[in-house]
Design a protein around this nucleic acid. Structure first.
Ligand SMILES: [Mn+2]
Ligand SMILES: [Mn+2]
Ligand SMILES: [Zn+2]
Ligand SMILES: [Zn+2]
Lengths: 134, 134
DNA sequence: AATTTAAATGCAACACGGTTGCATTTGTAA
DNA sequence: TTACAAATGCAACCGTGTTGCATTTAAATT
């Protein structure tokens, strides 16, 4: 009942099926929060070539299967689901205590009046604070 | 008339006066936009030891002389002025064309209702789009 | 089932941002 | 002038992310 889901997802996105990709999708499904390269590597002790993993992450992101998040720290994190653009906007909450990054769906996007000559395309909101677990 | 300013700033913040620090402040004053390590290094061809520069950047930030910004790219940028916290909030505009990062003062902070158990401390807004120069 | 082909992998090497330890130099205050 | 803490320079290191290239593998074609 687990392999079924990833099978379908990969098929629908026109991505070749490999062990790593199945494992990756399983991992994204089961973890609730955004995952860094280090997180994923640790979780998938097996089969983890750095470049392969990165290439798959970008492939997944390009296919709209995951989206990447840049919190204040220098590391990119990835979360399941499409990117927060055009109607799919959502903010990200970064816990200052446990460093966990949450996707916050259903937040009203702020309206801003930017200076003349500037054209805003998308707004990225990052909220820092203390999460419910801390 | 240029050295005067940096002299005062360093004194007020209780920071030792060095050539590099004067140059750094001059650079921050004259450039309008956020500066990455690479930007600064290129501008200050002279006297640029990597660790010294980084140590000064963090010292300046800690002293409230500059503030750091993390746009989508993995690189940290620094801009003159205090950090946008508690009443000093301001958003950052990242031009998708020229990569320039602008500090946008005077934007209304968005109000958000986050889930129960979460405590928001500060909100960081990054606007992507096309700047007035592009 | 055997063949073919494009895509995915593994590996090594690299670029770059950023940090740390330590010996030396320099600013500043006594 | 002396003395001490702070700043510098240097080298070595770590982690993220990328790239080129040879090899393997998934999946479509015969
Ligand atoms: Mn998200
Ligand atoms: Mn700013
Ligand atoms: Zn937490
Ligand atoms: Zn621009």
């Amino acid at each position: 009942m687990d392999n079924q889901q990833s099978e379908q997802l990969l098929q629908r996105k026109g991505l070749k099926k490999t062990k790593l990709r199945h494992a990756l999708i399983q991992h994204f499904i089961k973890t609730q929060h955004a995952q860094s390269y280090a997180d994923i590597k640790q979780a998938l002790m097996e089969a983890t070539d750095k470049s392969t993993l990165y290439r798959n992450l970008t492939a997944f992101e390009h296919a709209g299967l995951i989206h990447s998040i840049n919190d204040y720290s220098g590391v990119t994190k990835y979360a399941f689901g499409e990117a927060p653009i055009q109607g799919n906007e959502h903010a990200h909450f970064v816990c200052e205590c446990c460093e966990t990054v949450y996707c916050m769906d259903g937040l009203a996007p702020l309206q801003l009046d930017i200076p003349k000559g500037f054209r805003a395309k998308r707004v990225q909101t990052i909220i820092r604070g203390i999460c419910a677990d801390c």
